[in-house]
Design a binder for these strands. Sequence first.
DNA 1: TTGTCTGTTATATTAGTAGTATAACAGACA
DNA 2: TGTCTGTTATACTACTAATATAACAGACAA
Lengths: 133, 133
Amino acid sequence: MFLELDMAGDKPIYVQLKEQVIEGIARGSLRPGDDLPSVRALAADIGINLHTVNKVYQQLRQEGYIQIHRSRGVMIHPDGFIKADKTYRTNLKATLRPLIAEAIVRDLSAEEFTRLSQEVYEQILTKEGGENE
Amino acid sequence: MFLELDMAGDKPIYVQLKEQVIEGIARGSLRPGDDLPSVRALAADIGINLHTVNKVYQQLRQEGYIQIHRSRGVMIHPDGFIKADKTYRTNLKATLRPLIAEAIVRDLSAEEFTRLSQEVYEQILTKEGGENE
DNA sequence: TTGTCTGTTATATTAGTAGTATAACAGACA
DNA sequence: TGTCTGTTATACTACTAATATAACAGACAA
């Protein structure tokens, strides 16, 4: 797999792992129906505990990204993903709010903010690496 | 003051407090040179501990939003704020990356994402309340 | 000079989360 | 019967959020 975890940084590794699976789906590297490693295999592969992987899988399942079958293992959800609805948009705006408040104070216009967002869209879809903090 | 803290939610109250000060500056409710309450006064006002307020003030000072004088108290930084530089933009893009990855999976186009961002800009600048999660 | 305001520092405690370590349970299936 | 799967339970360490007291030190007005 294509995983790169920063064990030192302050972002929890289960969050990093979850985000990388979602970005893998966004990029198209992981496609509906694709198998994911078992909790034990992935944990051993990246050198972390089984429970940390399990926590990620449980959250991804709850949010509709993957399917888990008792003894057949884990796969990317074969029926596609939950579309952006009202609740999602409301939550996204709430998440963006403090980011944009800071942008305003730093004199970053809405147009510049949009340009940065476009760049991130392209970075993800064209498989560019993004410099992490 | 205009503070509304959610003690139950999972967002730490020191983060909420910090974000609300920054949004206050973004809105123009707090302007360069304005006094802020003392750590003890603000803590007593909203019913939290002195150290929680102090932590917020220290972080706001470190990031250039406020000035702290030993026994004269706290004020919004009178000389304006640090403009968006290369480092800030890089960090902002890193922060946006997982949000946008999820947006892509949920079939939210870059144009729609931009539209939501514009709405948040306007919400903040026109002093609308934003529904919190 | 004394009192009272300011931020600052030091300790200690409680509660919750992140991550690890073992172990065992239960379904599928070759 | 093994051996793979996810699942559950328990316990431990380390760290963070938040609180509670207490004391220190600078500024400044009465």
